[in-house]
Structure formats: C-alpha cells, structure tokens
C-alpha cells in the first residue's frame, strides 16, 4: 500500500512528520504516476504531491527530461523567482517508492475552461498574459551552468525532423501537415541569438492559477535547451485558446501583453520566431493527436478518450490553414 511507504518516507525526511493520509492517484501511465496526499504533522497537515516512476520504469522515454531533472528544474525555477512548488524530497532506494520526488502541493485551478469562464478569475484574466511573459522571461533567464547536464538541446531543425519522422510513421497521408512541414523547413530561423532553458509545455493544464494570478508552473517533463521563443509560440497555439480564438495567449490575452511582460523582465522578443514556433506547435499538437489514435489502436485498454483525441487532429489542420493559407488573402 502506497500510504505505508509514504508514511515511512516522510517520517525520515521531515522532522515531526508522523505519517500521511488521503493518498490518491491524480494521473497515471505505464511509466509515470502523480499522487496527492497530506503529510500529518503536529503543526498541521501539509499538502504534498508525489511524482514517480514505479520500480522498473526508471528510464525516461523519448523526449522526457526525466524525473530527477524535473525536480532540479523546479527548484531552479523557484530560486529564479518563477512561481513553483518547493521540492520537499528526492526519492531514494530506501523509500521503496521507485524514482521521483515529493513536492509541495499548491492549490488553485488548472482547468482552462474554468479559468477562462468562471467569475472568480474575471479580475485576474486581463493580467495573465503579461504575468506569463514575465514568468517565461524568468525561466529563460536561469543560468546555463546551473542546469542539469543531461538536458537535451532541441533546435528548430531537429524538431522539424522529429515531427516529420513521427507523422510519417503513422502511414496516413495528410496534405495539410505536408504543407506545414514544407513551410517550417522553408522558414527555419536557424539557431537563436541565445540558447536557453525552454519549459517545453508552457500552456493551460501546466499552470496553477488562482484569483490572484499564476501560482505555479508545473510539468517540466518536456524541458530542454533551445530557442526561448518556443515557449512564447506554444502558449499562443489555438488549441489552448478553448474557443476564445481572438485572444491568442491561452484564450485570455494578447500577444502584445505577453511580449510586454517578457521585455519588462529584461529579455527581448523576436515576433517572427514566435510565429514560427506557433506554427510548429500547432503541427506538433496535431501529430500528438494522431499519436493518441495509434495508441488507442495498439494498446489493450481501447481508451475512448484517446480515440476521440485522434479525431481532433483536424482542428489543427484548420488552424494551420488559417495561419499559412488564410482565406480572402492572395
């Protein structure tokens, strides 16, 4: 039972802690799990999150940065002033919980539709784009020499090649994706002026937001070294606007506000590169939707959700056409 192992674990690293209660899995795949629980402490319960790879799944697959890197990056982000949960403990073999880490749990909302529609967030919504610009600048400002050495570097050229290979592996022809791949190859901006830490998945779902603003940036699984404009382009992808298509930044703000927040924090925006990464991001989400369809067909669980995400690839096709071949234009 995970609560017994967690209780032994917290008693070892946190003075005064006597056990845990309320352990519940929030999300789980074959290789990675997220659990919430409360640490029982004489000063009051402490909300915590466990991120772990169960035993036998230590290696990070594909693009993933790995749980050790995630913990290190979250800590570095915290120190750089980026809203982040504190990392409380790195799992050791003695913990018998697999590999991973325990972090502070931050309360707030991650569900885009609530953030975009609920009255609780009405006052903060107009300020989020600018705030996220400042946060992105904080992430990109983390000193290179402090970063984990195993972080991989991903250039635009390499990302185009990876997306092409993945899309082709599905064996299903998509003329609109081909058009986007050509466009990307022809508009590859080359190496950025400065290679920085890139969050890699800076969007709704990975941001904890409260009525007071952004409380935490989560999920460093796709972090890498690369073009900082990638994060600004990804958060503008239409798939994360949830219907608010005229507010490019997460459905709540304007690019100008995002850029102003970024530049106010002392970093420079290259709007053409941001646009390039928005196209790349739109295609990337489309390819990920197709990947869901493959996993639906190949995996034993026949997940209906995955199957239906496969039918959302066409959303990215219309968004790519709106970006690359707008109607009414010559």
């Amino acid at each position: 039972m995970i609560e017994a192992a967690l209780s032994r674990c917290v008693a070892r690293f946190m003075p005064g802690a006597t056990g845990v209660t309320g352990a519940a899995m929030l999300s789980g795949g074959a290789s990675q799990e997220t659990w919430r629980f409360d640490i029982v402490h004489p000063d009051g319960a402490i909300g915590a999150i466990l991120r772990r790879a169960p035993k036998g799944y230590g290696a990070a697959p594909g693009r993933a940065a790995g749980l050790d890197n995630e913990a290190a990056l979250m800590q570095l982000a915290y120190e750089a002033g980026v809203p982040s949960p504190r990392v409380l403990h790195l799992l050791t073999p003695d913990d018998e919980l697999g590999t991973g880490f325990i972090m502070q749990r931050i309360e707030g909302e991650t569900i885009a539709r609530k953030i975009l529609r609920d009255a609780d967030f009405a006052d903060v919504r107009p300020h989020l784009a600018r705030q996220l610009g400042g946060i992105a600048a904080g992430i990109h400002g983390v000193a290179r020499d402090e970063l984990p050495t195993s972080l991989r570097e991903l250039s635009a050229t390499k990302e185009i090649a990876e997306l092409t290979r993945e899309y082709r592996s599905f064996g299903w022809p998509r003329p609109v994706f081909e058009l986007a791949l050509r466009w990307l190859a022809e508009h590859d901006p080359g190496p950025p002026a400065e290679v920085t830490l890139v969050h890699g998945d800076f969007r709704h779902g990975n941001l904890i937001i409260g009525p007071d603003g952004v409380r935490a940036v989560l999920d460093w699984e796709l972090a890498h070294l690369g073009d900082p404009m990638e994060d600004l382009g990804w958060i503008c992808v239409n798939s994360w606007r949830f219907g608010e298509i005229d507010k490019p930044v997460g459905g709540f703000g304007a690019r100008e506000d995002l850029f102003a927040g970024y530049e106010a924090a002392g970093r420079k925006v290259d709007a053409a590169r941001v646009m390039f990464w928005e196209v790349m991001g739109t295609l990337r989400w489309g390819v990920m939707c197709c990947g869901m369809m493959q996993r639906f067909r190949e995996a034993p669980d026949h997940s209906m959700e995955r199957a239906m995400i496969g039918r959302r690839a066409s959303e990215t096709e219309i968004d790519l056409l709106r970006l690359l071949a707008p109607r009414g234009a010559a």
Partner: peptide
C-alpha cells in the same frame, strides 16, 4: 481543395470548434 476538405472533416469531427464556426460562417 485543402480548405474544402478540411471544412468537411471538421463538420464531422468537431463542428463546435471555434475556428471552424468562424470559417464555415464566411
């Protein structure tokens, strides 16, 4: 061709998708 094909796909897949609603209404 690409526009018409894509609009026809969206009409089946996600007719409530905001980009589709706007483009289909043009």
């Amino acid at each position: 061709h690409l526009w018409q094909t894509t609009l026809d796909k969206l009409a089946v897949d996600q007719p409530n998708y905001a980009s589709y609603r706007r483009e289909a209404g043009r």
